[in-house]
Design a protein around this nucleic acid. Structure first.
Length: 846
RNA sequence: GCCGGAGUGGCGGAAUGGUAGACGCAGCGGACUCAAAAUCCGCCGGGCCUUGGGUCUGUGGGGGUUCGAGUCCCCCCUCCGGCACCA
């Protein structure tokens, strides 16, 4: 079957009058996809004798069909993999599915299909789609996180964390998404209090939940960002901000008339002499006791209840009104012995630091606003170098550096000295301790959902929390129907919940929460090294050969989600001796979004373009080429059907170039004619063009990661070949070199068409196994260059001269030009700057 | 508010401090055709000079460094992203 696209007369009837095969991408793409599969071209093995390259794209959630974002992600990954393969690396390029998650349950509710069936159907469909893109995956290594063979090891890793004190249960106020009917980790609450997945407003609930101790790794996660030069600065910065390290002093304020003291944390211990009050978060444990002892307990209780009723965002919005209530109790400043009132206030967060602060109204804007509102005194202990602060009249806190005052022995010290000196002093006299605080919270991993990996523990009446023994893994997810309303059916599945304690044999209940799906994706890159092993999550020799991932590609939206979690898992597994790598991803490329009509493609905007349709209409090669050409990979890409047509047109031109060559081309010798053997200048120019294309395309892909300019270079080569009319055997030999170079260099971008044309030139083997051509170095040096003559910095003449002239000779040659002499006639020359192979700038008077 | 990134033709985008606008899209003119599509050739930032050619101007705005600035420095404007009462 021959399908002719977009025009009725086949291309073959035009051109040189000789009929030839039209570019039938459908036939070509199918043919080569089949060829690669049958010949196991992309199957790769661990081979310590060869240098490895691990190229990985973030695996997709099997939502049903690929979208343009996927197509972009996987086009980039495939280009790199194929290129590096040609460069001689042993390339691991696997693909899998992040297959647990809520949408499967939503689909179950909507369409009445079981999450398992829905997910597996989607996986099969999307695998077909990925194959139709022509991606060079080693499909034997496909992993699906919802497969028991996989989640068995997710559970195993959870138990490993538990055994090592990195997983624990805690009763705490946690983020709850009503719409998703589950709790969420801090990282998954975005845009000021909204669920990362569904966008609903998140509320707080007090629940007992499982946490992973990621904060134990906070410092290392922060420090080793410095060892990731291959990561975009932006992502590293986002992670730094997210981890949020701050250095300060922890100090206790004894409560007057009570046995207890209040713990506080401050980054500005230098303002200790300026403390005029203490403030507690409404949730602070001491509040309850103060309420009990205070005559105005009811009033305080009322304030706390009212505050807690408000949503998180309402309470924590910048510039939001600060409210509070004086408890009537006093705390004693451990440095001055001064008694200051203890307040309860809405702007103090229980999650950060100790949930209590020392209030320094003179030097903290928030404290200032609060103090002014309630008539609390303002103390000044730092004076700016210019001006003089008056606590009575100042209208805002002074948060900058200055000179210490009203601070005992420290008066007169500049801030940069007083901060470290006073902190050290606090330790010396035993009132405080230097401490580091992080914004990063422990990772809440329990999810009240069905479609996830069960947390492998039971609750035994006698033994308490009991982990499932390793040899009993996996704890299989029972095949049950999801419940209307979205509640997890697991707690209701009595025959599954009721079990026996693996330790004492007595009655026990299973944990009915499943794990956050980000757990599943925190180690999949390790599993790819030996996905078939049933003995362990991954084999040491394999994982240590392949890890770390040399190039990771995905969206920036995972900067503070997956990319932090995966680093955490890698560090833990490394510390426990399972993998040598300390970091999972050596180089990270964050691709931009695919935009249409000014905004991200989305169903609600109705601006979605279906990858399947594009592939059907233009072919995978065209789709890939357009995506790689239209924008640099890290920038947003504007979808343009016209642009797609342009890419298609280019491929048709390449096709015609080869077909029109006919027998003359097919029979031309496969020989590289050295530059020096080419007599004519224009032949040498073409030779140079051919060779420099190899160099610049290689550099753009490998070093610059600028695939759009690489494509531009290939188009230039194609244009040059198209302009060239071979006349004799030497010409045809050169032409063949050009064509074959074009096909080789273009093949990582558009593999199918290149394979087909390569074969039509009667070449042996396939391009997927070919070697990237070596550059003939002498061709990179230009023979002649256009020298620009500038007068006072303005371009005046352009002169073609031999390359490599020294600046003296260059000046001489330029000045001997008639046009130049004319132009400079009668001018007083002040200075001449000559830049070899570039320009001559003449500075004249007037 | 703080921290990033970016502003270049009609559009997507190129330019180690050295010819601004590569490559592509759109547009315009022409060839082929009965015609259209496809294909091929030519033009394509703006202004002025009667055309060839020349000349001025032009990379968000304003200053500066330099023989020379889209690129480096300072100030400002706009847009996008992240964080946001984190003590």
């Amino acid at each position: 079957m021959v399908i002719i696209i977009q025009h009725q007369v086949p291309d073959g009837m035009i051109g040189k009058g000789e009929a030839f095969m039209p570019y039938n991408f459908e036939r070509v793409e199918k043919k080569w996809q089949q060829y690669w599969e049958e010949n196991k071209v992309f199957q790769v093995e661990c081979d310590p004798g060869k240098p490895k390259f691990y190229c990985l794209e973030m695996f997709p959630y099997p939502s049903g069909a690929l979208h343009m974002g996927h197509l972009r992600n996987y086009s980039i990954g495939d280009l790199l993999s194929r290129f590096l393969w040609m460069k001689g690396w042993n390339v691991l390029h696997p693909m899998g599915f992040d297959a647990f998650g809520l949408p499967a349950e939503n689909a179950a509710l909507k369409y009445g299909v079981h999450p398992k069936k829905w997910t597996w159907d989607n996986i099969e469909h999307m695998t077909t789609q990925l194959k139709s893109m022509g991606c060079s995956y080693d499909w034997r290594r496909r992993v699906e996180t919802c497969s028991p063979d996989y989640y068995r090891w997710t559970q195993w890793i959870f138990l490993l964390f538990l055994k090592n004190g990195l997983a624990y249960r805690k009763h705490a106020p946690v983020n709850w998404c009503e719409s998703c009917q589950t709790v969420l980790a801090n990282e998954q609450v975005i845009d000021g209090g909204h669920c990362w997945r569904c966008g609903s407003l998140v509320t707080k609930r007090k629940l007992e939940q499982w946490f992973l101790n990621i904060t134990r790794y906070a410092q290392e996660l922060l420090d080793s960002l410095g060892e990731l030069p291959g990561w975009p600065e932006k992502v590293k910065l986002m992670q730094r901000n997210w981890i949020g390290r701050s250095e300060g002093v922890h100090l206790s304020f004894p409560v007057d008339g009570m046995e207890t003291s209040l713990e506080t944390f401050t980054t500005r211990f230098d303002t200790i002499y300026g403390v005029t009050f203490l403030a507690l978060a409404p949730e602070h444990p001491l509040v309850e006791e103060l309420v009990r002892r205070s005559p105005k307990g009811d009033e305080i209780r009322k304030f706390v209840a009212e505050t807690l009723q408000k949503s998180e965002i309402e309470r924590t919005a910048v510039g939001g009104e600060k409210t509070g209530i004086d408890t009537g109790f006093k705390a004693i400043n451990p440095v001055t012995g001064e008694k200051v009132p203890i307040w309860v206030s809405n702007y103090i967060l229980i999650e950060y630091g100790t949930g209590a602060i020392m209030g320094v109204a003179g030097h903290d804007q928030r404290d200032f606003e609060f103090a002014r509102k309630y008539g609390i005194p303002v103390g000044v202990v730092i004076q700016p170098t210019e001006g003089n602060l008056d606590p009575e009249t100042m209208t805002g806190a002074f948060e900058g550096d200055g000179i210490q005052c009203n601070s005992g022995d420290f008066d007169g010290l500049p801030t940069e000295e007083s901060i470290p000196r006073m902190a050290a002093w606090a330790e010396e006299i035993g009132v405080g301790k230097r401490e580091v605080n992080f914004r990063l919270r422990d990772w809440l991993i329990s999810r009240q959902r069905y479609w996830g990996a069960p947390i492998p523990v039971v609750y035994c009446e006698k033994c308490g929390i009991v982990p499932i023994p390793e040899d009993q893994l996996p704890v299989l997810l029972p095949d049950v129907q999801v419940l209307p309303g979205g509640k997890s059916p697991l707690p209701e599945t009595e025959e599954w919940v009721n079990t026996t304690c693996p330790y004492c044999g007595g009655p026990a209940r299973r944990e009915t929460d499943t794990m956050d799906t980000f757990i599943c994706s925190s180690w999949y890159f390790l599993r790819f090294s030996s996905p078939w092993t049933a003995e362990c999550p991954f084999r040491k020799e394999d994982v240590n050969y392949w890890m770390a991932v040399d190039q990771y590609i995905g969206g920036i939206e995972h900067a503070c989600l997956h990319l932090i979690y995966a680093r955490f898992f890698t560090k833990v597994l490394s510390d426990l001796g399972y993998v040598e790598a300390r970091e999972p991803f050596t180089n990270l490329l964050t691709q931009g979004m695919v935009i249409k009509d000014g905004s991200k493609m989305s169903k609600s905007k109705g601006n979605v373009v279906d990858p399947d349709e594009i592939i059907r209409k233009y072919g995978a090669d065209t789709a890939r080429l357009f995506i790689l050409f239209a924008a640099p990979p890290d920038k947003d890409l504007d979808w343009s059907e016209k642009g797609v047509e342009g890419a298609h047109r280019f491929l048709r031109r390449v096709w015609r170039l080869v077909e029109e060559g006919g027998d003359a081309l097919r029979q031309a010798p496969r020989r590289r004619i050295p530059l020096v053997e080419l007599a004519a200048k224009d032949r040498r120019d073409l030779k140079r063009r051919i060779q420099s294309t190899i160099e610049s395309v290689g550099r753009d892909i490998e070093k610059e990661r600028q695939f759009n300019t690489a494509v531009a270079r290939l188009m230039e080569l194609s244009n040059a070949l198209s302009d060239f009319t071979p006349r004799d055997v030497t010409d045809w030999t050169l032409y063949r070199e050009g064509i074959e170079t074009l096909l080789l260099c273009l093949s990582p971008f558009t593999p199918h068409i290149c394979e087909e044309l390569w074969q039509s030139l009667e070449n042996q083997g396939c391009l997927a196994g070919a070697t990237w051509p070596e550059v003939e170095a002498d061709c990179l040096e230009a023979e002649s260059v256009t020298i620009v003559l500038q007068v006072n910095g303005k371009v005046r003449e352009k002169i073609e001269l031999p390359a490599g002239l020294g600046s003296e000779e260059l000046k001489e040659r330029v000045f001997s030009e008639e046009a130049v002499r004319k132009r400079l006639e009668g001018k007083e020359i002040l200075k001449v700057i000559a830049v070899p192979d570039r320009l001559v700038n003449v500075v004249v008077k007037g």
